[in-house]
């Protein structure tokens, strides 16, 4: 399907993948794209691995794509980048939060959290690695890490007509506006540094 771009946002339940997809789809709609977004609720949200998919283009049919079909992978956690890497096209780009979060299975000592996730991703794919949690913590609230990461990836969307800062302004709650704008700009700057 030419002219359709596919984005996969992966993370851990509660990290805020949904907000990223909301900002993204809002901006893409404004730019006049046909947009579809798909997410899963319920059981998986309780600290489990979660993913959200966004597709946009002239005309989008399938709301869900499969392996080897993502143009962009946004991972809010480094092991989740590895888990969803098979969804990336060989020439796709991964935007990865360098953060490492234990899973219930590794915390309980049933599995060992794998070492070298970032390096393994960088060996295979073009990657933008952002210490989004550190940046967010410096800004005063680790929870705005998701908006930092969005700032780092919005340049890849190929939707140049969109003023993403305005979209962030529109989507995030008013009381957290300044924090999220700072997070967005910090993410943008972090990505530029890597270019």
């Amino acid at each position: 399907m030419p002219n359709v771009k596919s984005v996969l946002i992966a993370g851990v339940g509660g990290q805020g993948a949904i907000l990223i997809s909301r900002i993204m789809t809002e901006g893409l709609m404004e730019a006049g794209f046909d947009v579809k977004q798909s997410e899963v609720h319920g059981m998986a949200q309780r600290g489990g691995s979660v993913s959200t998919q966004v597709r946009f283009g002239d005309k989008v049919y399938g709301p869900v794509f499969g392996k080897g079909e993502a143009d962009i992978l946004i991972a809010l956690e480094q092991m989740e980048a590895v888990r969803y890497a098979p969804f990336l096209k060989p020439d796709g780009v991964a935007v990865i939060n360098a953060y490492r979060q234990e899973s219930a299975a590794t915390a309980a000592g049933l599995f060992q959290y794998p070492e070298g996730c970032l390096e393994a991703m960088q060996k295979q794919f073009k990657c933008i690695v952002v210490p989004a949690n550190e940046i967010a913590e410096k800004l005063g609230n680790p929870r705005c890490m998701n908006v930092v990461l969005f700032g780092a990836c919005c340049g890849l969307m190929g939707a140049d007509s969109v003023n993403w800062e305005d979209v962030v302004r529109k989507v995030v709650p008013a009381k957290a506006l300044e924090l999220n704008l700072a997070a967005f700009r910090a993410g943008l700057a972090a990505a530029e540094k890597q270019e």
Partner: peptide, 11 residues
């Protein structure tokens, strides 16, 4: 990638 993700079940 040449590392494997380990399970992250809901908890």
């Amino acid at each position: 990638p040449d590392v494997d993700a380990v399970p992250r079940p809901p908890a």
